[in-house]
Design a protein around this nucleic acid. Structure first.
Lengths: 232, 232
DNA sequence: ACAAAAGTGTTATTCCTACACCCATGC
DNA sequence: GCATGGGTGTAGGAATAACACTTTTGT
């Protein structure tokens, strides 16, 4: 007779706010882990799969139109990961563009990943896994579209990459690499200069807003094909 | 009152046999999907997480010492993915070296991915996802260690890569790329030539037998650092 | 000697980093 | 004019694909 088991979904929703990678969490008011911060999510419904479920549950915390990308990270299934009845979690990474400022419930707030408050259960491990996934995919896919506004200057994009990756990025090379791979294209418009002057910056956009692998790792690709990521 | 739900684990165990990528499956004797081929796996036990569970269940089908790598692929959770009580599956990729020939139960057999018989439930999608994961990781990690014998010639390794990737691979460049990245090293021994003669081939081994990223995608790495995959 | 298989040398290309230099605006 | 920020040109270097050539064996 198996122990009763629930299935939940949890989302580490990441956004770059104030040049820092932050995660959305809500503060638990009830035990267990009262006062600690938890990821949004909840029980899987009877008539939905985990992808639909996480989208539905996020709708209660943030405006859905602002979540530009959602993907499965992993299953967290330690029998003792939460006290009481067994609960298995499918963890997701969610991304929100830097220019969005979704209204969130009163018990909910953004926290920099570098200064996380006490987290509930195993949610810190989920956040780490989500951050690692984001960093990896920023480098070999066009996933930046999910962090950036619809239009942006190269230096704004550079700051997003620096915040997400945690290491310096050259604006010069960022622009050239991403345009060569047809990930970025100029909109034709210019951004006004700041108060101190300076040349007005050109605005760019991502050519696609769905995930695509752009750097199909050089080593073992079929012979005779260039490296560009499948240009249609 | 939520619908009762079980959690199962399923493994797409892949091996290269006869220069072809094959998957281990067993033929169902009972409905539903009687006669169709299913992936090994089963219900998650009360005192184990999904990783331990898949290892335990594989022990019933193949000798565990032969499974050199296991990793989570994704959760499959469509409410109607199997008839009857709801069942959520965590899918895994498992790999067995080409020189192993594990004893398997009578209802169990290997099948080339290119000529799969009728599969049960959504298992074909799981097999596809596992194959895609294998192909991707072969290119940017040292995952080849899990497909290859402990020692091998470069041309044997080349055939493994061809079978797994499905496109031609140059033995010359394969050797140079993998040794430059310190993924491969010579054992110092030689393999005897075949019946038709020919120069005896040097034997190589993988320097590590745990997963490591060897090509940390060039674009956005920190400045001033070479591309080698974190050589210890 | 000749065929077969393995391995090395070499060249051309592609892609990237780094850095110097030029451009456009506010004050 | 000059400070400030944006963008381009270009040289050097690293990694790889392609292919010719050499080495070592069996018959």
């Amino acid at each position: 007779m198996p122990r009763p088991t629930e299935h939940e979904v949890l989302a580490a929703v990441l956004q770059i706010r104030d040049d820092t990678l932050q995660v959305l969490a809500w503060q638990r008011a009830q035990p267990p882990d009262s006062g600690r911060w938890a990821l949004p999510g909840g029980r899987l419904g009877d008539d939905e799969d985990v992808e639909r479920s996480v989208v539905r549950q996020l709708a209660e915390k943030v405006d859905l139109r602002e979540v530009t990308h959602v993907e499965q990270i992993a299953v967290f299934s330690d029998p003792d990961r939460v006290p009481g009845a067994r609960r298995i979690a499918t963890a997701f990474l969610g991304l929100v563009p830097a220019d969005a400022d979704p209204a969130v419930p009163a018990d909910t707030a953004w926290h920099p990943l570098t200064a996380l408050p006490a987290t509930a259960f195993d949610h810190a491990a989920i956040i780490d896994a989500a951050r690692d996934r984001l960093r990896a995919k920023l480098s070999y896919t066009n996933l930046g579209f999910a962090l950036a506004p619809r239009a942006f200057t190269i230096s704004a994009l550079r700051e997003l990459y620096v915040a997400a990756l945690g290491h310096p990025v050259s604006a010069t090379n960022l622009q050239r690499v991403l345009t060569r791979r047809h990930v970025l294209e100029p909109t034709g418009d210019l951004a006004p200069p700041g108060p101190a002057g300076g040349r007005p910056a050109a605005l760019f956009r991502f050519t696609e807003r769905t995930l695509r692998v752009t750097d199909a790792s050089a080593v073992l690709r079929p012979p005779g094909e260039p490296d560009r990521g499948a240009v249609p």
